[in-house]
């Protein structure tokens, strides 16, 4: 009987869940130390452009960094094995709600695991940014 919730979870087709939290200042320090080379290893041109068009770019960058990490965690992956953070692109729809597009090896992995949708959310407050990702069939 205790397993019922778990079984219901499977019935909803959830295939993965990931969360990530970071100090905004931590990312800012890294970018200040390593500059554009570091930004380009994590973010796409479009993401960099968008975040730096905002008043507080680092809270947006940190939330996106968390979202990318959350997606990797949801897939049960770390970096490497041909997957980079740039393979996860964070975009906003017309209402400003985030969604992700995945590319490369990660896209292949999603297709193989029957993941057809990635539901995401991100937020920031004060010193921290946070994001979650749920994979569904």
């Amino acid at each position: 009987m205790e397993n019922r919730g778990f079984l219901l979870g499977l019935d909803t087709g959830i295939k993965g869940l990931g969360v990530d939290l970071m100090e905004i200042e931590r990312l800012k320090r890294s970018v200040e130390r390593r500059g554009r080379r570091l930004l380009e290893k994590i973010f796409t041109e479009e993401e960099i452009r968008y975040c730096f068009s905002m008043g507080e770019p680092y809270q947006h960058l940190a939330a996106r960094f968390c979202l990318k990490e959350a997606v990797l965690k949801a897939f049960g992956l770390g970096l490497g094995r041909g997957v980079t953070l740039r393979d996860i692109e964070v975009k906003l729809n017309e209402l400003g709600k985030p969604y992700v597009e995945i590319h490369g090896r990660l896209k292949e992995k999603a297709e193989k695991s029957g993941v057809s949708r990635i539901i995401v959310s991100m937020s920031h407050s004060g010193e921290y940014a946070i994001a979650v990702a749920i994979l569904t069939g």
Binding site: R33, R37, L38, K41, I42, F65, G78
Partner: peptide
């Protein structure tokens, strides 16, 4: 951590 790794790669490349 993940960010250390990316930073270290950038540092070594430079």
């Amino acid at each position: 951590e993940s960010l250390d790794k990316i930073e270290l790669i950038a540092a070594f490349e430079e």
